Amino acid sequence: DAEELIELVERALKEGREIILLGVRITSEEAGKWFIEWIRRFL
């Protein structure tokens, strides 16, 4: 579910982890915020 995915992304970014989803590397909080917004819009 989308909320679970958002929580995972937020937690990983807070822990300083690198996330790779759909071939996109997300390493900064700014990118994470963009990704979370995208999830909310399309899922």
Rank of each mutant, 00 (worst) to 15 (best):
Leu5Ile: 08
Arg17Phe: 04
Trp38Phe: 09
Leu5Asp: 00
Glu4Thr: 13
Ser28Val: 04
Leu13Gly: 01
Leu22Glu: 01
Leu8Ala: 06
Glu15Gln: 07
Ser28His: 06
Glu3His: 13
Phe35Trp: 04
Leu5Tyr: 09
Leu22His: 03
Glu7Gln: 13
Trp34Cys: 07
Gly16Ile: 09
Arg17Lys: 11
Thr27Leu: 11
Arg40Cys: 15
Leu13Val: 12
Ala12Leu: 07
Glu15Ile: 07
Ala31Pro: 04
Val9Ile: 09
Glu15Phe: 07
Arg17Cys: 11
Trp34Thr: 11
Glu7Pro: 02
Trp38Ser: 02
Asp1Thr: 15
Leu13Cys: 15
Phe35Leu: 09
Phe42Pro: 00
Glu37Pro: 00
Glu30Met: 10
Leu22Ile: 08
Asp1Gln: 14
Ile19Asn: 02
Phe42Ser: 05
Gly32Arg: 04
Glu15Cys: 15
Arg25His: 14
Leu21Lys: 00
Ile19Pro: 00
Ile36Glu: 02
Arg41Phe: 13
Ile39Trp: 03
Ile20Val: 10
Ile39Gln: 01
Arg41Trp: 13
Leu43His: 07
Ser28Pro: 03
Glu3Gln: 14
Glu30Cys: 15
Phe42Ile: 10
Ile36Gln: 02
Ala31Val: 15
Ile36Val: 07
Arg25Glu: 10
Glu15Ser: 05
Glu7Arg: 15
Val9Arg: 00
Arg17Asn: 06
Lys14Asp: 07
Ile39Glu: 01
Leu22Gly: 03
Leu8Lys: 05
Leu43Met: 13
Trp38Cys: 14
Ile39His: 01
Glu3Leu: 14
Leu8Thr: 04
Ile39Arg: 00
Leu8Tyr: 07
Ala12Asp: 00
Ile20Arg: 02
Leu43Trp: 13
Glu10Asp: 05
Lys33Glu: 07
Glu30Tyr: 08
Asp1Pro: 13
Leu5Arg: 00
Arg17Trp: 11
Ala12Arg: 01
Lys14Glu: 11
Glu10Trp: 14
Arg11Tyr: 06
Ile26Arg: 03
Phe35Asn: 00
Arg41Gly: 13
Gly32Trp: 08
Ile39Pro: 01
Arg41Ser: 15
Arg41Val: 15
Trp38Leu: 07
Ile26Phe: 05
Gly16Thr: 03
Ile19Arg: 00
Phe35His: 01
Glu7Ser: 14
Lys33His: 11
Ile19Thr: 00
Arg11Ser: 10
Leu13Ser: 02
Arg17Ile: 08
Ala2Tyr: 15
Glu29Phe: 11
Glu30Val: 09
Arg11Val: 08
Glu7Asp: 11
Leu21Met: 04
Glu37Ser: 06
Glu4Leu: 13
Ile20Ser: 08
Gly16Val: 04
Ile26Tyr: 05
Glu15Pro: 02
Ile20Leu: 05
Ala31Arg: 11
Val9Pro: 00
Leu43Tyr: 14
Arg41Cys: 15
Thr27Tyr: 11
Phe35Pro: 00
Arg11Asp: 07
Ala2Trp: 15
Ile6Tyr: 05
Glu30Ala: 14
Trp34Ile: 11
Glu18Pro: 09
Ala12Ile: 06
Ile39Ser: 02
Arg41Ala: 12
Lys33Met: 09
Gly16Lys: 09
Leu5Gln: 01
Ala2Ser: 06
Arg25Lys: 12
Lys14Arg: 13
Thr27His: 13
Leu22Asp: 00
Leu21Asn: 00
Leu43Phe: 15
Gly32His: 04
Ala2Val: 13
Gly16Ala: 11
Ile39Asn: 01
Phe42Trp: 15
Leu22Pro: 00
Phe42Gly: 07
Glu37Asp: 11
Ile6Met: 07
Ala2Met: 14
Leu5Val: 04
Thr27Val: 12
Ile26Ala: 03
Leu21Ala: 06
Ile20Gln: 04
Phe35Ala: 03
Ser28Tyr: 06
Ser28Gly: 10
Leu5Ala: 02
Glu18Met: 07
Gly16Trp: 08
Trp38Tyr: 06
Glu29Cys: 04
Val9Lys: 00
Val24Phe: 15
Glu4Lys: 15
Arg40Phe: 09
Leu21Tyr: 03
Glu4Asn: 12
Ile6Val: 07
Glu37Trp: 08
Thr27Cys: 15
Ile19Asp: 00
Glu10His: 12
Trp38Arg: 03
Lys14Ser: 12
Asp1Tyr: 15
Glu7Met: 12
Gly16Pro: 03
Arg17Leu: 09
Ile20Met: 07
Ile6Gly: 04
Ala2Phe: 15
Ile26Cys: 14
Leu22Ala: 03
Arg17His: 07
Arg40Glu: 07
Ala2Gln: 08
Glu15Lys: 03
Glu3Cys: 15
Arg17Met: 11
Ile6Pro: 01
Ile6His: 03
Phe42Tyr: 12
Val24Thr: 03
Lys14Thr: 07
Gly32Asp: 03
Glu3Ser: 11
Glu15Ala: 08
Ile36Lys: 03
Glu30Gly: 09
Leu5Trp: 10
Leu22Trp: 15
Glu18Ala: 08
Ala12Cys: 03
Leu21Pro: 00
Leu22Tyr: 07
Lys33Thr: 06
Arg41Glu: 13
Leu8Arg: 06
Glu29Ile: 13
Glu15Gly: 03
Leu22Cys: 15
Leu13Pro: 01
Ser28Ala: 05
Val24Lys: 02
Ile19Leu: 06
Leu13Arg: 02
Glu3Tyr: 15
Leu8Val: 04
Val24Glu: 02
Ile39Cys: 08
Ile36Ala: 03
Ile20Tyr: 07
Leu22Lys: 02
Arg40Met: 13
Glu4Phe: 15
Asp1Ala: 14
Leu8Gly: 01
Glu30Ile: 07
Val9Glu: 00
Gly32Leu: 10
Glu3Val: 13
Trp34Leu: 13
Ile20Ala: 02
Phe35Arg: 01
Glu4Ala: 14
Glu29Thr: 11
Trp34Met: 12
Ala31His: 13
Trp34Ala: 15
Phe42Val: 11
Trp34Glu: 12
Glu30Gln: 13
Glu37Gln: 08
Ile6Ala: 04
Ser28Glu: 04
Ser28Lys: 01
Asp1Val: 13
Arg40Lys: 12
Glu3Trp: 14
Leu22Val: 04
Ala2Lys: 08
Thr27Trp: 12
Val24Met: 04
Gly23Pro: 04
Lys14Gln: 11
Gly23His: 09
Arg40Thr: 09
Gly32Phe: 10
Val24Trp: 13
Glu7Thr: 12
Trp38Met: 06
